[in-house]
Design a protein around this nucleic acid. Structure first.
Length: 400
DNA sequence: TCTGGGGTCCTAGGACCC
DNA sequence: TCTGGGGTCCTAGGACCC
């Protein structure tokens, strides 16, 4: 989806079309929306001058999305708000409304599922679609189906998206970036040399800041330069696994399937404080936040029907260094009190001299859970045996 | 310019078992 | 007097993605 969060906001504030708008910082609340409607009659009646500007923002947030006019100023997602404010102080700042974005996410994905049932969810604004067996999926290299998906999504939501069509997910993802917004790009295997090789390595999904910097240090900037390196050379510098992957990716090779079903591995809640807190001085406040995080994770587990037995915490110090601790217990749980108790044990094993900027709680090793019977549903992972095996005929040593 | 929140996967060492 | 080989699980950290 093109500038997804911002585009959803423009649907309710059409008067902001064409202007630099960024989403981030605070959360949308129904109360604030009600107040705006009371004041102006309707949301689309609010004059542009009345919207808050980025320049006024004070705090720790990051930009989640910027409209294309805002991107002209160098503002982009994941950028700190204070930096963005310097680059484009006049940009209009809107709070994040995840509830609404999820609704639009569900809608556009349902549109796609009607047209092409093999769809892999890649988050709130992105999917992979298998065109292979869809009627007309091969017409004009996929362009016809891509265009009709775009049109149906626009009819249902008023939102635009960009589509990349290619023989695998790696290339399709890259192709989808070529013509944003509202673009369609097709990459055939024989196009890799002239369409992919000139691009920066960082355009490959899976090469991030660290790998990108390491590659640059080795004199490799473009994908073509990466493709020119031998497999043994890459494995020598990046390890067997990642090296082999780099080699394949640089040649446009990717055999991952489109995965239509998946189970969650963990659920977590975390929060960054408005200002740093200290375990000694702010004990009461931290305790309340900690308990609240445990309650929220428990609530998430219960709502979605899961329980877990690995309970962990995350802590980020004022210097941005993070530590994690986790404990795996015998019994699965989705209970806030149990989570709080075990997470408390984790917290005891972490140094607390420094000030803290973030606290998080995580539950992993999940199973489907029936709250009424307090039992796992379906296949339960086998718990490791705690016994020494003494007296168990099946565990007699084969040799000494 | 100090950097959100929710995830996944990988690596590597140690415990423990046969 | 230093000592095999295979496996799984647990833990901590880190890279990366949306």
């Amino acid at each position: 989806m093109d500038a997804f969060f911002a585009s959803v906001e423009l649907l309710r504030y059409p008067q902001l079309k064409g202007l630099p708008v960024v989403i981030g910082g605070s959360r949308h609340t129904p109360e604030h929306e009600a107040q705006l409607i009371a004041q102006w009659g309707s949301l689309d009646a609010i004059p542009v001058e009345a919207f808050p500007r980025l320049a006024r923002y004070v705090g720790r947030g990051v930009i989640t999305t910027a409209t294309y006019p805002a991107r002209q100023f160098g503002v982009g997602s994941a950028m700190g708000m204070m930096k963005a404010a310097r680059l484009c102080p006049q940009a209009i700042l809107l709070p994040i409304d995840f509830v609404r974005y999820r609704q639009y996410s569900r809608t556009f994905k349902d549109v796609i599922l009607e047209m092409a049932p093999l769809m892999e969810d890649r988050g709130v604004d992105e999917v992979y679609i298998d065109f292979t067996l869809v009627p007309d999926g091969q017409h004009e290299g996929g362009r016809v189906l891509a265009a009709s998906i775009q049109q149906r999504i626009f009819e249902k939501t008023g939102l635009t998206c960009s589509v990349g069509v290619a023989p695998n997910k790696l290339l399709a993802k890259m192709a989808s970036e070529f013509n944003k917004p509202q673009g369609i790009s097709i990459v055939m295997p024989q196009d890799v040399e002239h369409q992919i090789w000139p691009l920066s390595c960082r355009k490959i999904n899976g090469i991030g800041p660290k790998a990108g910097a390491k590659l640059q240090g080795l004199g490799i900037v473009t994908i073509g330069e990466l493709a020119a390196k031998s497999l043994p050379w890459l494995m020598q510098h990046f390890g067997k696994s990642y090296g082999a992957w780099l080699h394949a990716a640089s040649h446009g090779q990717d055999d991952r399937a489109v995965v239509t079903e998946s189970e969650p591995v963990s659920m977590s809640r975390e929060t960054t404080f408005d200002s740093d807190l200290h375990a000694g001085h702010d004990k009461v406040q931290l305790g309340a936040i900690f308990t609240r995080l445990c309650e929220r994770v428990a609530q998430d587990l219960q709502r979605k029907g899961y329980a877990g037995r690995t309970i962990g915490i995350k802590l980020r110090y004022a210097n941005f260094k993070s530590v994690t601790r986790e404990i795996t217990v015998d019994a699965f749980t989705q209970d806030a009190g149990t989570i709080r108790r075990v997470a408390g044990q984790c917290l005891k094993r972490v140094p607390l001299e420094q000030s803290i900027r973030l606290l998080g709680v995580r539950v992993g090793c999940l199973v489907h859970w029936d709250a009424s019977t307090q039992q796992a549903e379906g296949a339960v992972p086998v718990l490791p045996r705690k016994s020494t095996g003494k007296g168990d005929p099946l565990s007699l040593p084969l040799f000494d």
